[in-house]
Design a protein around this nucleic acid. Structure first.
Length: 279
DNA sequence: TTACAGGTCTTGT
DNA sequence: ACAAGACCTGTA
């Protein structure tokens, strides 16, 4: 196992910050997730988070996924030194949030599903797609305490572009609604153009935004989420219905983006989380 | 019944 | 360029 001591890591807050849809909290307080085809469990006690994996897997995969190398203390100090009282409040509530570096393709599909939708249905649709593809994730033997509830555990890897039949999206039980044709088109496009995804990784923020928005079913908000959570462009600042409301209410004179250049996307998560907590 | 959910597309000006 | 209106569907 791996242990991390930091006030800037909280599984509960990350899970509720809306950037990931496949994390789960089990009855015994264990958090679990599937990413990049791997299953992982975590627990938190005080400022110490325990990850149930070995050092090789930690260094090769999760360290990047959890954004471990970023200096969140510097962000904390930047916020403390700002004159933004609302942001300070938000950070006090959600300082355990991090920007996950998630699988790019998974982010594209997940946030396409998220448009004009609610969290429970988004999660249901995503999990249903994973089950439909039926690719077992590499999990097995690493369950904390050996008491994992298999019925709750996400068992399937996220399907790649070629892992689902195009007809699957017509199935109403997936709950995709009017987004189904967008997704069918994206899956078939990505399958026929395997270089498209890799090219996105080589682009800067503006280029990636243009390439993403060119696809049907991806607008500015979804593209920003993909840039932020899948490409690590931390200047991306997704403006959804909640952020729009919060900006109008707490920043009527305009938000000071210049002061937070280079971390705007992370700031957005604190604000978003705080807004949700207050509703 | 209506409104809303981490929006986007299409159409009309 | 910008403003409506439509859109699947579960939940309150």
């Amino acid at each position: 196992m791996i242990q991390l001591e930091s006030p800037y890591f909280d599984p509960e807050q990350i899970m509720e910050s809306g950037q990931c849809f496949r994390w789960q909290k089990k009855d015994n307080g264990v958090y679990c997730l599937v990413a990049f085809g791997r299953y992982l469990e975590m627990t938190k006690a005080g400022n110490i988070t325990t990850f149930y994996c070995d050092e090789k897997e930690w260094n090769g995969l999760w360290k990047t996924y959890f954004d471990i190398d970023r200096d969140y203390d510097a962000i904390s100090q930047k916020i403390a030194g700002s004159g933004d009282a609302h942001l300070k409040e938000a950070f006090a509530i959600g300082q355990g949030i991090r920007i996950l570096k998630q699988d790019l393709w998974e982010m594209i599909v997940s946030f396409m599903i998220s448009q004009n939708n609610n969290i429970p249905r988004i999660r249901g649709s995503i999990e249903a797609l994973c089950e439909r593809a039926g690719i077992k994730c590499d999990s097995g033997d690493k369950m904390s305490g050996g008491n994992a509830d298999v019925s709750l555990r996400p068992l399937y890897a996220f399907p790649g572009p070629g892992d689902l039949d195009t007809g699957v999206f017509d199935d109403k039980s997936l709950g995709l609604g009017y987004r189904a044709p967008f997704l069918a088109e994206m899956f078939s496009f990505a399958k026929e153009n395997p270089g498209w995804i890799d090219n996105l990784r080589e682009m800067n923020y503006e280029q990636a935004m243009d390439a993403l928005i060119a696809r049907k079913g991806i607008g500015p908000k979804v593209a920003n989420c993909i840039c932020l959570f899948g490409l690590g462009h931390v200047d991306a600042f997704p403006i959804d219905t909640h952020v729009k409301q919060l900006l109008a209410r707490y920043y009527p004179g305009g938000f000071d983006f210049k002061s937070f250049e280079g971390v705007a996307g992370i700031i957005q998560q604190y604000l978003f989380y705080y807004e949700l907590k207050n509703k």
